[in-house]
Nucleic acid binder design. Structure first.
Lengths: 114, 114
DNA sequence: TGAATATATAAGCAAATAGTTATATGATTA
DNA sequence: TAATCATATAACTATTTGCTTATATATTCA
């Protein structure tokens, strides 16, 4: 029994966003834990504006949501999204990315919020 | 139990191709039956070169395969593809597109091969 | 309050994309 | 064999994309 039957055009828009290595990896990371912008900057070794722009695209169609915590803005995945079942099916097949955040922890650059 | 763990970069490339309404619909159609170029031209009301170019992209990464039958070239999905499990998971959620070919049958423009 | 930090946004640019028209190729048919 | 049909490819173009640098905004901290 399948979770949803999706509109093919909207599904295409979701897949288009996921069809980028950076955003796809971001989504896989966010599927297991929330993460702030500066952590992504470090993980992907990309400029802060570039990371922000990728996150904006994901946020614009509400696949992710932001939450300010002090000076940081944390992003988390929106599991209530109409197309989250589609996203989840894809992310399930991807290799675990938790090592990326573990590395930051080891280096002491993981942002932990009280 | 999941079928595969895929490489995130290759998965991104697949999703990028599927992130186009025309190609995504083509794949959904081809997942249930093979189809020739001129049928796609009619279904999508797009130019023949445009259809050919979409098919070429799908063929280049071997998501589909071609088979000449007389003057027509039929395309079918490649279920042996390393990433077909990923593709299948996505296509499963999409609305059935068989009505599109049924319409051609009704109009008598469906190509049937002996 | 002023400096530092984190993030977002704007503007610009090169590369990629998806369509177009024109033409080439290959099979069928008269 | 010449005309026709189906498809592919090439060349061109407008749009989109993903990055860059520069700057604006919001928060924290001294």
């Amino acid at each position: 029994m399948l979770e949803t039957i999706v509109d093919i055009e909207k599904a295409g828009a979701i897949l288009k966003l996921l069809g980028d290595k950076t955003r796809l990896t971001m989504m896989k990371i966010l599927d297991s834990q929330s993460c702030c912008v500066c952590e992504f900057v470090e993980i992907f070794e990309m400029s802060q504006p570039s990371i922000s722009q990728h996150l904006r695209k994901l946020r614009d169609i509400r696949l992710v949501q932001e939450e300010r915590k002090g000076q940081w803005i944390f992003y988390h995945i929106n599991k209530e999204h109409e197309y989250y079942p589609l996203v989840q099916r894809i992310l399930e097949l991807l290799p675990d990315q938790r090592a990326k955040l573990k590395e930051l922890e080891a280096k002491g650059t993981r942002i932990t919020c009280k």
